[in-house]
């Protein structure tokens, strides 16, 4: 049953805890760490693709599990220390103006084309884990929409969306907080909403217009597969130029082909582009997260990847020298 439940998007956002029979630590760890839906999806896709790729190559070296927790602890603690130190002692930098990517300009133009009397549907389709990133992108955009006098509604597709909508509206300083309309059924619900032009389906919540009545549909997404659901189940019925998107950085690659094909008019991915967008719309960007800490985290990953390459090259060279000697 689980695959079907997962397919319709109505599964709990967390996986079932491991059963007692699973004794291998690796199995338990993998299950527990892939707790969030988006994490699980992304890891699954990457694992399948990498596994598929790996088959034609010599078998990969098995990791030494005994060293695993040691590495994890040292690197984890080092990284935590660096991030906490930056948060405590380094002030966040002033916002700098930089080059604006084409997809951000496209979104800005679409937003500025909206005027009083236009209807916009804001679809809140993200999870609590990414809410800080999503709120920092979405709050200035919602403030702009509210200032323009655009009529907008908030649709949520996940149960946790009911409280995430309140959090988003209160962060954006929008009063009164608009009622969040819950759309059940995952991709079934999205499809039903897209094809229902005369609002006759009992599935559709009251207060919601037919999708064609909205000048724009603004997707707030943190899951590539959910973004794909909107593109596959709704966009073919609505024609081009309707969808705008604010997506978590992890979905930037997924949105690229849909933007290039014109199914998405414009989008913003991640907090940096979100801050640029806020500036373009004349709004105050939100300072979340601490940008210096983010830079420290990115530099740590760069150093680790370079170290990984160097140590591998060193190990290969040592192996070759040994072979030559023997």
């Amino acid at each position: 049953m689980e695959p079907i439940v997962a397919e319709v998007g109505m599964q709990p956002e967390v996986s079932v805890p491991p059963e007692e029979s699973e004794t291998a630590e690796e199995q338990r760890v993998a299950q527990d760490l892939l707790l969030l839906r988006s994490q699980k999806e992304r890891a699954e896709v990457l694992r399948n693709l990498i596994a598929e790729e790996g088959k034609a190559f010599p078998p990969a070296h098995k990791p030494k599990s005994s060293h695993k927790s040691w590495y994890r602890l040292v690197i984890g603690l080092l990284m935590l220390t660096a991030l906490i130190g930056t948060l405590l002692f380094v002030p966040p930098p002033a916002l700098k103006e930089g080059a604006v990517p084409a997809h951000v300009i496209a979104l800005q133009e679409a937003m500025q084309a909206l005027g009083a009397g236009d209807k916009v549907l804001v679809v809140l389709d993200y999870q609590p884990a990414t809410s800080r990133e999503m709120v920092s992108m979405a709050a200035p955009v919602l403030q702009f929409i509210a200032e323009r006098g655009v009529s907008w509604q908030l649709l949520v597709t996940q149960p946790s969306g009911l409280w995430l909508a309140q959090e988003l509206a209160s962060t954006a300083g929008i009063t009164p907080i608009p009622e969040a309309i819950y759309l059940p059924g995952g991709n079934l619900g999205v499809f039903a909403l897209a094809i229902d032009q005369n609002q006759s389906s009992p599935l559709l919540p009251s207060g919601l217009s037919a999708l064609n009545d909205y000048r724009a549909i603004l997707l707030l997404e943190d899951s590539g597969s959910q973004f794909q659901v909107w593109m596959e189940q709704a966009s073919p019925w609505l024609g081009k130029g309707r969808f705008l998107a604010l997506v978590a950085k992890q979905d930037a690659a997924m949105v690229l082909p849909y933007y290039d094909s014109g199914q998405v008019t414009g989008y913003v991915a991640g907090t940096q582009e979100g801050a640029l967008m806020a500036q373009l719309l004349g709004q105050q960007p939100m300072h979340l997260p601490h940008e210096r800490a983010l830079q420290v985290g990115l530099i740590i990953m760069m150093v680790i990847l370079i170290l990984s390459m160097i140590t591998k090259a060193e190990a290969d060279a040592t192996g070759r020298r040994r072979e030559e000697k023997t």
């Binding site: 707790l35 984890g76 609590p128 140590t311």
Partner: peptide, 30 residues
């Protein structure tokens, strides 16, 4: 939900950093 899910996602960043150190040892050059 908020702190637990955000911490789990944050933990993924720490685990990814630890895993990246052995990435090329495990996958080899291709």
């Amino acid at each position: 939900q908020q702190p637990a899910e955000a911490s789990l996602l944050g933990l993924a960043a720490l685990v990814m950093a630890a895993a990246a150190l052995r990435l090329f040892h495990q996958r080899g050059w291709s």
